[in-house]
Design a protein around this nucleic acid. Structure first.
Lengths: 221, 221
DNA sequence: GCCTCCGTGTTGGTATGCCAACGGACTTTC
DNA sequence: GAAAGTCCGTTGGCATACCAACACGGAGGC
């Protein structure tokens, strides 16, 4: 199975022929990693950005006492290590490892940013994509920080619902998570989340069924 | 009082004369905002990146029920709205307003990214700075999410301490926060934080005095 | 039909954090 | 040197979330 690079966040909006030509200009190299192999080790900086072609990459973090935890998992088309590559000299706080046998494209950030000898307009698009990618992740993280800020489950839910309402422009919307995923996103227990949803429905704040929610447009008191 | 742009994150590493020339090329405009004026309103997208020259800008968020809260505050030299400007069409979730009478430089993101007619090597540096800026903010937010993930104060502290140890390479380090700031960073109560620090010291996990901490290198059990 | 699996809601006991209030140490100001 | 402000630690009562366990219903396999 082969990824179409034009569908990835990093190369979107570019013609396949352009991409092909560009990969040479960038000296992009395809690498294969056996399951369990470390792609980028913690503690050292990297100038490489990775794009998963097949398989799966996991980002995991260990504290100084040896406790490991998985922070995220990146499948085909996904980009990894871009934030570290874009901060010169910044050592990784995480290990990037292959969860399965994995093939990945590695790009040197300097080749991405440096203007190539034959002025190459595609670079502009690539850099813009990279910047957009970083900024999107930025906004995602900001929202997560925002919604996990309140201390009660109800306030976290209302914070999240407020975003949904603003995004969709409607007090009636679907959410892309099941209960467990929503609980993880808001950093609360699934059962406590279910319970709080019930209470909010009992209190007349919301109505819901599965992933569809109606939030009452209440007059504040 | 006037900011030296060469000291800002966005223009660092560039010669003042280069910056001056570049501002013209970018069609950068200096704007003045009276205290309380909205610089970028919520709900609409912006193509402008702001750099605070004097005064202060606040980022505030209101939910759909009218509750406002300040998310951050940006002083001279600071950059704002860059994440939104770099995601085409993304409407702001926040209001950007002038906390005081404020002067700010506004740059159009498209002029930053599009190659200028007279091939301008300074653009490369500017774009790299912008990318570094976004990526640094990215890593900062990731760390915050990481440290506020655990549910107990002790685990949050240990998570934070683990990062400090890795960063400094030593189990003895200073932190850049006072108690209130650390509590805000970890999303806990100051008094509860103080209490937990006491208990951890009693339990022999750490020793501390003011902002200096010694974490015991314990053999795991 | 029966079975299992998975997602969801419900409940009660326990642990933990929040909150408000206070006291001590230190600094700044006049 | 007195007074006020700031930062930090301590305590007790209260609120809330966690945790484990169980019940229910639908989807899918056989």
């Amino acid at each position: 199975m082969q990824i179409n690079l034009a569908n990835t966040r990093l190369f979107r909006g570019m013609e396949p022929s352009d991409i092909e030509e560009m990969l040479g200009c960038l000296r992009a190299k395809e690498h294969a990693f056996q399951k369990g192999k470390i792609i980028f080790p913690e503690g050292v900086a990297t100038e490489q950005i990775g794009v998963v072609l097949s398989g799966r990459v996991i980002i995991e973090m260990g504290d100084v006492w040896g406790n490991n935890s998985v922070l995220s998992s990146i499948g085909p088309g996904g980009v990894f290590a871009e934030a570290y590559a874009c901060v010169p000299g910044e050592p990784l706080m995480v290990n990037v490892t292959a969860a399965e046998d994995t093939r990945a494209l590695l790009l040197n950030i300097r080749r991405v940013l440096e203007p190539c000898a034959n002025v190459c307009p595609r670079h502009v698009r690539l850099v813009r994509n990279l910047l957009t990618l970083c900024s999107e992740k930025n906004l995602q993280l900001s929202r997560r920080v925002l919604h996990t800020g309140p201390k009660s489950i109800r306030k976290r839910l209302l914070s999240y619902f407020s975003e949904c309402i603003k995004r969709t422009g409607s007090y009636s919307f679907d959410i892309p998570y099941n209960r467990q995923q929503l609980a993880d996103y808001l950093s609360v227990e699934r059962s406590a989340l279910s319970n709080e949803l019930s209470l909010m429905q009992r209190d007349g704040l919301i109505r819901y069924e599965k992933n569809h929610f109606d939030v009452m447009e209440q007059i504040d008191g």
